[in-house]
Design a protein around this nucleic acid. Structure first.
Length: 158
DNA sequence: GCCAACGTTGGC
DNA sequence: GCCAACGTTGGC
């Protein structure tokens, strides 16, 4: 059982999309970075918990939690020539990229902003807050997970 | 295998 | 929309 943080652009797939269909799995596809792919393929497992992080938007930060409900499998979008994620180098026998399935767990009462995350001395090791970081799938330690959860709940009640 | 050129990410 | 930081590509 591991903890993760996944980045997404909310215009494409936000925490609200999860909240709208809490009983349905959502395909997490389109990861096209080798380091992130390796995490997805080799370490992300059914049962793991994931922070959903909204990037490249007005309100940047962690919006909520999802859980992994399906281990990695070949990302269908790489074979779809109509998809923006199409990869001509991939075929049925040679799949470069993988996807996992996620399901809604909770939406934070209030988004935990990137500024808040940067302020915490306990999160200095989190790849997300390091300068120039571009990883879209990154591990979160159990201590960091607890820290972030507590920060999210506390600001929700104040 | 080096590295310059180019493309992408993502905060501001 | 800008641009710094990083990843990828491709010529040599």
């Amino acid at each position: 059982m591991n903890y993760w943080l996944f980045k997404t652009e909310p215009e494409e797939c936000s925490i609200d999309d999860f909240a709208k269909t809490p009983d349905k799995a959502i395909v997490w596809e389109g990861v096209r970075n080798y380091q992130a792919r390796n995490f997805l393929r080799d370490q992300v497992q059914s049962g793991d918990l994931v922070f959903i992080y909204h990037s490249s938007c007005k309100d940047i930060g962690i919006a909520g939690v999802a859980k992994v409900v399906q281990n990695s499998y070949p990302d269908p979008s790489q074979f779809n020539s109509l998809s923006p994620y199409f990869d001509a180098k991939s075929s049925g026998t040679k799949a470069a990229w993988v996807a996992v399935d996620l399901q809604f767990v909770e939406k934070f009462p209030q988004l935990l902003s990137l500024d808040k995350l940067k302020e915490s001395t306990k999160l200095e090791q989190l790849a997300l807050v390091k300068k120039g970081n571009r990883l879209s799938v990154m591990p979160v330690s159990p201590a960091e997970w607890q820290t972030i959860l507590i920060m999210a709940k506390n600001q929700g009640t104040t």
